[in-house]
Design a protein around this nucleic acid. Sequence first.
DNA 1: CTGAAAGCGCTAACAA
DNA 2: TTGTTAGCGCTTTCAG
Lengths: 345, 345
Amino acid sequence: MNIKQIATAAGVSVATVSRVLNHPENVAPKTREKIQKIIDEEEYTPNLFAQGLNFKRTKTIGLVLPQNINSANMEVANGVEDVARQKGYITFICNMEKDPKREKEYLDQLITRKVDGLILLYSTLNEEYASWIEEENVPIVLIGETKARDSWDSVFVDCRAGAAEMTAHLIECGHKRIAMLCGKDPEPEAKAMLQGYKNVLKASGIKVEEHLIYQVNNNIEGGYIGMKKMIGNLPRKPDAVFASSDEIAYGAIDALKEMKLRVPEDIAVTGFGNDRMSSLMEPKVTTVELPYRKMGIYGARMLFDQIEEKQAKAEKRRRPKKIQLQTKMRVRKSCGHRERIGEMF
Amino acid sequence: MNIKQIATAAGVSVATVSRVLNHPENVAPKTREKIQKIIDEEEYTPNLFAQGLNFKRTKTIGLVLPQNINSANMEVANGVEDVARQKGYITFICNMEKDPKREKEYLDQLITRKVDGLILLYSTLNEEYASWIEEENVPIVLIGETKARDSWDSVFVDCRAGAAEMTAHLIECGHKRIAMLCGKDPEPEAKAMLQGYKNVLKASGIKVEEHLIYQVNNNIEGGYIGMKKMIGNLPRKPDAVFASSDEIAYGAIDALKEMKLRVPEDIAVTGFGNDRMSSLMEPKVTTVELPYRKMGIYGARMLFDQIEEKQAKAEKRRRPKKIQLQTKMRVRKSCGHRERIGEMF
DNA sequence: CTGAAAGCGCTAACAA
DNA sequence: TTGTTAGCGCTTTCAG
């Protein structure tokens, strides 16, 4: 069923049908109703490709994320989708599997498909590719720390502060030798966290010992291996381990259990991210909650602001907007705190 | 950059450019090379909307899944995407959040967007809507048990056999009173599992006791609540609990711990699905592994078979194809087996 | 082997 | 208020 058939059925021209679709106020009420009735009956919806050809807008946005199998990322995605759906948009969710090459592939695909906007989560883009993309003149927003150029709108989380808060909490729990298992990616975020950790140690008069800091792969296995190595290498075990992600913490805890070390009695462990499983592990993992869904929502809103500005042809070069969100501590058992335990989930 | 500009730059007509894109063999080698060079230099890619208008194909498929934040579903999605990407297709991944209304919304969207094919994971479609969709004449394949009409190609898992194997294993472990925490969805699958469970009990001469069977929500909370209720209601606790999903098992274990019951010493618990976390829980959870990625891959392959058949205009009505995949036991600690423990992940 | 032109379904400027 | 028509970018038939 296409516009011509509707027009014939209603005994009008295609232009009139198009008008009731796009500018109903310019059609006589009687004609409009007659046409609308037929449209409803036939359940006619305009061909989006034909529309796309004219409007140069596809009602589609692209979201590229580092990994699929990761509830945090999907939470962000859901936030994005919430607002996109509300605007009548549909989202291409693209999983780059932490492979920069794949990120570029998808970006190419999305641009070929003329998406109206792009959201990149923890993008790995380098300067060169970033400026290539900029030429395409497609609205973009970045979510999460990235080394990509900061001429784009972005929303990110103050992970340095989150890491600082956690480190401070560990000190408050009475721990002195606090090790860090720091994931290698996303790199800028890991660096920020390391910063926060070091700053607090220094401020508390605790010497930063580089041999207590391990760079590991940002997953369960990375935490497991890192923890084993660290304990193996160290003459004296640390009091606590601050993992830069919950997954790393899981791996670390698993490794400690295997070595017959009790958590938190012998070594405290904390995570970062508040993964759903953290409240089910034994012991329940103290961690830092990130506002994932919010990140997605704010990011998408910024994107639609850009899209609407662009449509309004307000092409003036504005300063990129930045939104910073805060983290929130979730004190459970694994950090060995004596009093503040007790959250259920 | 559009086809006209390429044509001008090459000093040929648009038709010729189009030809080197679609039927290069019909272009003189010299002309072809000249044009190709310009295409490469300018990094020209044809506008997919214009192409879509002509070809009535969009190089896009839709995948509707029950939930996003679920690594199993995303594994399936990755399987689908693997083969789609390879074919130059991109996938709309749509999260229905277990809401049938949303499933329909998305289906409408996808059809409006003229996707070339549709894959539905654990679809909740009823007959009526299913036949509506069938009229659209878009290739469809179903993955996972569903009550939707079986006139469609589908790949599903033999969950009855999986459940039977697990039940048999529990019996073999010496358990007699085996309770079941059965998720309410996906419904057909839950039913199949219940069947498998009952069959084995009967075959082993154990009476099926309906008060040992609880229907719960298929998530952690459901398992938690169900377990608490069951223990509260039962005069004598069961030897083992067979949960129809890993998530339910997690909730159940959490509840048991709270009630100071040891797993597996006091009560054994097993799951279904082999969630990544099952090998990290305390105790590690005995479970049944489903071939998620394979499900996606096989499903997508079936879909592309249909798409290609359709293009070949072989409109002959064929019998729908069905693929059945098998599960695999993962014996860990939580089932209380004395010997076969020892898997790492 | 190549070009002119029609047409895919729709929108919008221009006329009536 | 409505219709006619050009054009969005591409493919393909039909002539040449």
